[in-house]
Design a binder for these strands. Sequence first.
DNA 1: TATGAATGAGACTTCATTCAT
DNA 2: AATGAATGAAGTCTCATTCAT
Lengths: 209, 209, 209, 209
Amino acid sequence: MPKITETKREERRQQILDAALRCFSRDGFHATTTADIVRESGLSQGALYLYFATKDDIVVALADDRHQGEVFLNALAKSEQDPVQGLLLLIELYGRGLTDQRRIEMRRVGIQGWAEALRNPRIHDSVLQGFSSVRAAIAELIRRGQATGQIRPDVEPDAAARTMIAVFQGLVLQLAWGEDMDLAACGTLIRGMIRNTLFTDAVRAAESA
Amino acid sequence: MPKITETKREERRQQILDAALRCFSRDGFHATTTADIVRESGLSQGALYLYFATKDDIVVALADDRHQGEVFLNALAKSEQDPVQGLLLLIELYGRGLTDQRRIEMRRVGIQGWAEALRNPRIHDSVLQGFSSVRAAIAELIRRGQATGQIRPDVEPDAAARTMIAVFQGLVLQLAWGEDMDLAACGTLIRGMIRNTLFTDAVRAAESA
Amino acid sequence: MPKITETKREERRQQILDAALRCFSRDGFHATTTADIVRESGLSQGALYLYFATKDDIVVALADDRHQGEVFLNALAKSEQDPVQGLLLLIELYGRGLTDQRRIEMRRVGIQGWAEALRNPRIHDSVLQGFSSVRAAIAELIRRGQATGQIRPDVEPDAAARTMIAVFQGLVLQLAWGEDMDLAACGTLIRGMIRNTLFTDAVRAAESA
Amino acid sequence: MPKITETKREERRQQILDAALRCFSRDGFHATTTADIVRESGLSQGALYLYFATKDDIVVALADDRHQGEVFLNALAKSEQDPVQGLLLLIELYGRGLTDQRRIEMRRVGIQGWAEALRNPRIHDSVLQGFSSVRAAIAELIRRGQATGQIRPDVEPDAAARTMIAVFQGLVLQLAWGEDMDLAACGTLIRGMIRNTLFTDAVRAAESA
DNA sequence: TATGAATGAGACTTCATTCAT
DNA sequence: AATGAATGAAGTCTCATTCAT
């Protein structure tokens, strides 16, 4: 029976992860020292190791945490009765996420995770798991749309899902670089691309109406 | 007055960069030690510092090197008389580059450069310079296409350019992660998106013919 | 006024010492952490410090504990009327102790104490006190034997005592190393050496009879 | 081709081992820090790791070094034509070694090696190898002595060798503890024991003559 | 120019001990 | 008395960079 409650424990853990997120966002995984995280979190050097066995575990925990949001969005989209509306909802939500100022740090760390995934197997697994769940959710929506005749049958669901995600990945990257871009115009363009390329003429006609 | 010829010097420099590329691709910038590069290059520890003042300079030099190819592609696309053909050529060339097995290491290092650009100003400048030149080249083609009436006037050239690049960035990333994907299907989809969304009906009709 | 009885307190203390003995035997003093002892004893980290002020005190307490057995053996030997029989009894008892499987851990820790005594004054005092008491007991027996004419007068009691103890120290060491040795043969040899070198011809003749 | 000669390299290595010996003798293996060794050796922290991969390697190297002398003594004893003279020579040499003031530190470290051998397999192997070679050399001398009729046939060579070594181990220990002992008396006693117990009457008679 | 040994600051992690509950 | 979370000093080892040869 732990002396501190599970809630308190989770709170401390989050405190460390928050501090780490800020540090990693600013300096990157490797240039961030455990001392930095300690300083940022207000805990002691030793306390860090009561919650995470190694610095690497903190990185992995952050990568794993990122899935939570994605899982939620996927579930939301899948719950839509109409697959086409589900797709548009997903685009809408991810697009809105792009501009959320509170997630700047998460996105910056996410990008570092992409790079880290190339050489750190644990990060690779974590990042790929998140990616795959989104890809599968989108592909599933597309398949359902094809079944209902709303989405063109010649569209390859998996390739389309990957391509859609790719656009967002690229935009996340460009935004993180501090590029001053017209996100609204990009959004319009992307929605146009999806409509023009995935949806059948009947759906497009109905939408215009 | 250097005792070795400029040619010889450039040769050594390249030898170091080649070794660094292999190391960085395998282990990342930070996990690669100068000793690793020395071992991989066959030079001596001291020799490294005759050609690069710091390890960071090697990273920057590699980032700068990456532009060479992009500059060439952009020039090629711009030299096309017909902007629509120029755009399609660019897509074709970049798409082909995706599958070039000889550039696996460069792409892996490139992704690390994306992340590094978030915190290292010199890398940021280098990466952004390359990115901006491509973006400008594409936007310019789009503007020319709008002038000739081949590309829809409501398309925002810069946003479109960014979005097109974003797709490729995302695909590069997914490929580097080792994903087994149907690149041909992605290519078809992307070309379809471009045609459906950027080109005017007249151009699309002419193409179909 | 302590809330727990003195008996209970002593019980806990012994519980810690037992755990420490197992840990020290396995890993040595220095590689054993207080956390190891806590884990092995089933107590809590804080409880340890209710019974011992420092880790060092545990080591010292274990060293002190070792004397108990020796004190008993010495007393037993001294109580013998016949010094020669006392000597032989001592050899017999110590020799039997060598093969006692229940004391493997004590012997291993004892050897570590020998080394620790070289640098830790408290251990030095503890170990030396135990050693000296045995040495004095043996020397005393020898002196008594010389007084009765059973032991050769040219034997130096203290040197003989040290030498006898030395043999056992060496054998303890070799045994602890896991050496597979013929202890019976060693015993025969040692008894032979004692007889041949310490005892007068009269005693030897009497024994043979 | 190393820049520094093999001689110079060996010199530095020895410089570190000498410093380590002093530190280990004074503070023990575990209480000695690499910083201590660095300070004592006059080298830099990094230099240490050019010659030894880990602190543990230094400990092992010191343990291994100890064999050199033993190998020499064994060879010397074996080269004796007369096994009995060989045995007495060995006792003489080891006994003299006991009082060599220059080897105080080596003996102190050696004792720590005994303890360390109980838990560190590399040290165990190193220490046991040294021990075994001496034991084998003595047992071989005894066997040769039995073949020539100089040593009693009922003596178990291996047990006798172990017992002889045991005496020296115990005396080394007692000396290291700082005990003020009459080594000459011990020597006389030991020689007496060997003569009285191992040698046949013929040999003893010849010696007395 | 070229070598590679040397440097030393600093990183991660452990652990004896304390203290609020 | 008892708990176990918290502390922070200290230890081992790495590595970018320098410098004598």
